[in-house]
Amino acid sequence: MASTPAIVIDQLTVHRGGTLVLDAVTCQVAAGSITGLLGPSGSGKSTLIRSIVGVQKVTSGRIDVLGRPAGSRPLRSLIGYVTQAPSVYADLSVRENLRYFAAVVGAAPSDVDGVIRDVGLGGKAGALVGRLSGGQRTRVSLAAALLGAPRVLVLDEPTVGLDPVLRRDLWQMFNGLADTGTTLLVSSHVMDEADRCSELLLLRDGAVLAADSPAAIRARTGTDDLEAAFLALIDAQEVAAR
């Protein structure tokens, strides 16, 4: 990898509710990349993301973000985090939600209208979040993470339930952010989003199955289709395990 990594994960092991969820995960996320975190449901994507933002109790291992241990104080204003379920106040309007989060991260109140526009909610700024559709709520949650122009954006399935046009617009915005040097880690279990990423991290049963660019993964598995590539990697792993 040419650029210095923004996130370095070394031998990360996490147990949840007594079971092993992440098993000695070692991987990196390049600075300025859009890295897709892919894997089946229950493979540990959200757990890995929670560990990176420092809200997950970890058993052992080390995570550095921008050269600092994950969860350390200075990092909290440098990372934007979108939880998998939209985490915004249903009893506040879109703008009231974002004004509050802007105050917490120390972003200018004038940033609020900008991020509302970025996620395509310009017409809904005054609406109560509780009266928005699921996809609209997801976007309010995403907008909150964009406040303060964080250097690292960690997004847990930010495009679930969105239509193709909106997804394209959001990915355009992600690309724009990456162009200005922001590092994005985006989880998804939709394989067609994988192609929009510059790097992929395939997770299965709490372990890294592959970490490479989409092109390299295609070449390695000899298939054009990333979904087929993912399945081929799983088969190869199972053969090796036998």
């Binding site: 929670r50 933002v53 420092g54 809200v55 104080r73 909290r76 204003s77 990372i79 985090y81 939880t83 379920a85 939209p86 985490s87 915004v88 106040y89 249903a90 989060f101 917490v104 991260v105 120390g106 909150a144």
Partner: peptide, 13 residues
């Protein structure tokens, strides 16, 4: 339960 606490605790608060 709404996850807003998790978000806030990941922020500089």
């Amino acid at each position: 339960t709404s996850g807003t606490l998790e978000r806030l605790l990941a922020m500089p608060l």
